[in-house]
Amino acid sequence: MKDELKYKHLAEQAAREHRRERKIRTIAFLKRKSAAAALLVLVLITLAAVFAPLVAPYPDQGKGAVNLGERLQPLSGKHLLGTDTFGRDILSRLVYGARVSIFGGLFIVCAAALIGVPLGLWAGYSEGAPGVVISRIGEILISFPAVLIAIAITTVIGAGLTSAVIALIIPWWPWYARIIQGEVLRLKRMLFVEAAQMLGYGKSYILFRHLLPNIMRTVMVMMLLDFGPAIISIGLLGFLGLGTQPPNADWGLMVWEGAPNLMQQPWIAISPGAAMFILVMAFNIFGDNLQDYLDG
């Protein structure tokens, strides 16, 4: 009994040490100005997207209500980023558009990981046919441009955010499957796998207890670094009219709507473009820093 207490004490001490180590590294991570700034931008944009009805100065215009009395207003105290061809407040529309970018991006990345990671595990861990079949299917899907798939899906279920997101997930998950397959093939040759085999543990035990924990880090970094490209892709499909349909707000769609007036009223197109640029940069900088932190 006394011995058990002694071990408990040791376990707590070790846990404390590991926590302290992690804390030191986290502080060092946040002290890097680029990481902190990127995190701040991400948090602000996410909060704005979540609480859009409270944040946007003109929530109904953000959702698409027209206000023809104030068409094409330049930047002013009343409309911080001006108004568009229908007189709608651009800042409000940016805030509502952020919902599409953030949640659409999140959905694409999560769905791609949820489909790709299990298939990659399966492809990497089973010898022979499944690996080959999954890789070939993945290669075929990757070779189709998302725009082409989006057009095909649009003809079936109609244009909209849903078809855009589906069109992006289809060629996206194979990247996860491919990277995870490679990781599994690498880890499978590690001796701790053989040691577990020697103890009589079966394939699924080794897969979930030994391989998966060693793969989660790669998946996390990959998801974070994929956010930027996912957001840009949604914007691209919106710009081409294959994504969000007017009068809903979407940054890519807003750029397209502002394009005819680019010479006279540049703020209409530049604001959503700049918003997208800032958000994607923030994700990339944060992702790079996180990768360093996890490797360190």
Binding site: L191, F192, A195, P213, N214
Partner: peptide
């Protein structure tokens, strides 16, 4: 049982 050559790779880092 078996004890391998490379102890680093024989232990699961997690």
């Amino acid at each position: 049982q078996m004890v391998f050559q490379d102890p680093r790779s024989s232990l699961n880092p997690k």
